[in-house]
Computed example of a mutant assay.
Amino acid sequence: MTSTVLTLSKVTRAYGTLKALDGLDLAVPDNAYVSLLGPSGSGKTTLLRVIAGFETPDAGTVTFKGRRVETVPPHRRDIGFVFQNFALFPHLSVARNVAFGLENREVNPVTDPKVVEAKVRDMIALVGLKGLEDRGVTQISGGQRQRVALARTLVTEPSLVLLDEPLGALDANLRGRMRGELRAIRERCGVTFLHVTGSETEALAMGDTVLVLDQGRIVQADRADALYNRPNSVAVARFLNCYNLFDGSVSDAGFKGPLGTFPLGAHRAPAGGRPGYAIRYDRIDVRPEGAGVAADEVAIPGTFIADEYSGAAVNSFFSLEDGRVFEVESHLSQHEAPDCTPHGRYALVWKRDDALVFA
Rank of each mutant, 00 (worst) to 15 (best):
F81T: 10
F81H: 08
V82Q: 00
F83H: 01
F83Y: 08
F83T: 02
F83I: 05
F83P: 01
F83M: 03
Q84A: 08
Q84I: 09
Q84W: 13
Q84V: 07
Q84T: 09
N85V: 03
N85Y: 09
N85K: 12
N85W: 07
N85R: 10
N85F: 05
A87L: 10
A87H: 02
A87V: 08
L88W: 10
L88Y: 12
F89Q: 04
P90D: 01
P90I: 09
P90W: 07
H91V: 04
H91E: 00
H91N: 07
L92M: 15
L92D: 00
S93Y: 15
S93E: 03
V94H: 13
A95E: 06
R96C: 10
R96P: 02
R96G: 06
N97I: 06
N97Q: 09
N97G: 11
V98E: 01
V98Q: 08
A99Q: 01
A99K: 04
A99P: 03
F100R: 01
G101R: 04
G101W: 10
G101N: 05
G101H: 08
G101Q: 03
L102I: 14
L102F: 13
E103N: 06
E103G: 05
E103C: 04
E103A: 13
E103S: 15
N104C: 03
R105Q: 03
E106Q: 13
E106G: 05
E106P: 01
E106D: 01
V107Q: 15
V107E: 13
V107M: 14
N108F: 09
N108C: 09
P109F: 07
V110P: 02
V110R: 08
V110Y: 09
V110K: 15
T111E: 05
P113M: 15
P113A: 12
K114W: 14
K114G: 07
K114Q: 11
K114V: 10
K114F: 08
K114C: 04
K114P: 00
K114T: 14
V115I: 11
V115H: 11
V116M: 05
V116H: 03
V116S: 02
V116F: 12
E117G: 05
E117A: 06
A118I: 12
A118H: 10
